[in-house]
Design a binder for these strands. Structure first.
Lengths: 231, 231
DNA sequence: ATTTAATTGTGGGGATATTCACATTTTTTA
DNA sequence: TAAAAAATGTGAATATCCCCACAATTAAAT
């Protein structure tokens, strides 16, 4: 399933090209020393909740979900993102154990980076540390808002918001394949698969979207936005 | 309403005594230069959502709530904490604007610290930066779990969890004054004031708690824990 | 002390969303 | 290609929780 590329040269690593980190060659070597690039297929778990934190994971490309099993043994998707980005970072600094899982929603290339190199950079490159602090801060603030939105809005609104998120942020198109099953979509917006089906059915009847299995075309983005806003 | 103590010497600042930060006198001076200590009464706003981020705020003592107005113009309490702790930090690094408010739930002493001094320490004291990263990371992870818990559990369970939180973390006693009105309690656990009243009424009938206005005595902590766990 | 405002309690109707049971379709595996 | 498994669609009954209206109590202000 997995293909390990040994002696990964890191010469063209996405970390380097990612402008925010802006590392020079020497620093990139520090980071990539003892790093391993791994390919994941759609559906494969990249980080498993409950395992010990050993690595920082850099997702070079691919769509991933951050998700965790809640107190009622029900899975919930916290966030869906796409590379390039670091994942699992907060757990590495906060815990000895991963508090959430990361799973590939599309074929994904990820780089497992030894924590010590990352930590070295944090301590010896003030700019890198500040960039990390900024990223963590943005994540907190974003999640605060996402959480309140999810709590207060009704499901149709949260569903509409999710579609807009896919359309605008993940796929940058009005037409895309939902990277989730109905069950997962439920876990993402906080409901059951049946309710997801019903909302899709309602939206289709109202000619807001056109759905065929996982394929979605947004017909009326304005109304979708309005539904998302009204709550 | 507010009493400003000028020329705050910071000699006995709680930041210093807080072991995790472990700053020496010189660093404390950097931090406290241009800092102002302010007293807040119960109910007074310390940070207002929407205002520009100018200061790091250190709550020396007192109970505070972090809360924000959601998309439906409804307030939601994200977190209730007590000093000593820094508040509003993520916004300072992520935004130009505070994304949430901080309000005193009890009489509170807070120190407004100029951002530049704080930032200087982050960049020049690796340990301080790492401590900040650790704190931010813990906050994210904790909030992920709190959010999922709130989303998946029923209100009785979330209410029970809140009581246990007050009892164990905030007041460290089985008997305490709820620092919230019924409306605020609703905003905290994600419901209306009426539902809060009803849950309290049910719990009282079942002899789980004894309530007189804001005063609560926990009679059966085991059941409370069980209710919280079951969801 | 008296008035005013804010907070809290209570009940019932109604809306949103869940649960369950079963049918159907699609995907995966053998 | 056939069989098994997973995913999806649908409707009805049920549950949880919200909204509304009004009464009662407590706290704040004059």
């Amino acid at each position: 399933m997995r293909e390990i590329i040994k002696n990964n040269p890191c010469k063209d690593c996405a970390v380097k090209s990612s402008t925010v980190y802006n590392l020079d060659n020497e620093e990139l070597d520090v980071l990539c020393n003892n790093s391993t690039e791994i390919q994941f297929q759609k559906g494969e778990r990249i980080i498993k909740q409950g395992t010990f934190t050993q690595n920082i994971v850099f997702v070079k490309s691919g769509i991933v979900k951050m998700h965790l099993t809640g107190p009622i043994h029900k899975d919930e998707i916290l966030k869906i993102s796409k590379g390039p980005l670091f994942v699992g970072v907060p757990d590495v600094f906060a815990n000895k154990v991963h508090s959430y899982s990361v799973t590939a929603l599309s074929d994904t290339t990820a780089c497992f980076i030894d924590f010590s190199g990352y930590k070295y950079l944090v301590q010896n490159n003030g700019k890198f540390a500040l960039e990390l602090i900024k990223t963590l801060s943005e994540n907190i603030v974003t999640h605060y808002q996402r959480c309140v939105s999810k709590m207060q809005k009704q499901l149709t609104a949260t569903f509409a918001e999710a579609l807009l998120y896919f359309s605008e942020y993940i796929f940058e198109s009005d037409e895309f394949q939902i990277p989730l099953t109905r069950v997962e979509f439920g876990e993402y917006i906080g409901t059951t698969r049946e309710t997801v089906t019903k909302i899709i059915s309602d939206f289709t009847k109202d000619k807001i979207i056109e759905v065929n299995g996982k394929h979605v075309r947004i017909l009326n983005k304005d109304i979708l936005q309005k539904i998302s806003n009204v709550g």
